[in-house]
Write a protein that binds this DNA or RNA. Structure first.
Length: 118
DNA sequence: CGCCTGACAGACT
DNA sequence: TAGTCTGCCAGGC
């Protein structure tokens, strides 16, 4: 885990990791939200980019980060959307018949407390 | 140091 | 509601 002090010195990626790592199970956050949480130091697009470069094995729940439509990441990310979907379902996240996440129900809404701890 | 790409979002059609 | 176009920016080469 990165320390709170460390993330302000590290690149934007570190901040993204910090936030993503704090997304509670059963909830999902959009790239835009994350970008907003870090006071728009970067764009939603950058968050995605960072995630692409994200080191697995740090316990980083990248599968909880989705785009605003609730679509899952492309197949080349987790080895198939089905994989990501399985992981999310295991956390209690429900899907629509479209294969998209039920955002209205699972969107991370109370991240204000997180910011205090961060 | 400059050019190209991209796990997105918002506005428009 | 969905598909298309555009905008911003950090990383990779």
């Amino acid at each position: 885990m990165l320390d709170k002090n460390e993330n302000q010195n590290s690149s934007l990626a570190a901040k993204v990791y910090e936030i993503v790592a704090r997304v509670p199970a059963g909830k999902v956050a959009t790239y835009g939200q994350i970008a907003e949480m870090m006071e728009i130091e970067l764009d939603a697009r950058d968050v995605g980019h960072v995630m692409h470069h994200a080191p697995a094995g740090r316990g980083l729940p990248c599968h909880r980060v989705v785009n605003k439509t609730g679509m899952l990441a492309p197949d080349y990310v987790f080895g198939g959307q089905e994989i990501q979907r399985s992981m999310l379902e295991a956390e209690g996240i429900t899907f629509l018949s479209d294969g998209r996440i039920q955002m209205e129900r699972h969107l991370w809404g109370d991240y204000e407390q997180l910011l205090l701890d961060l």
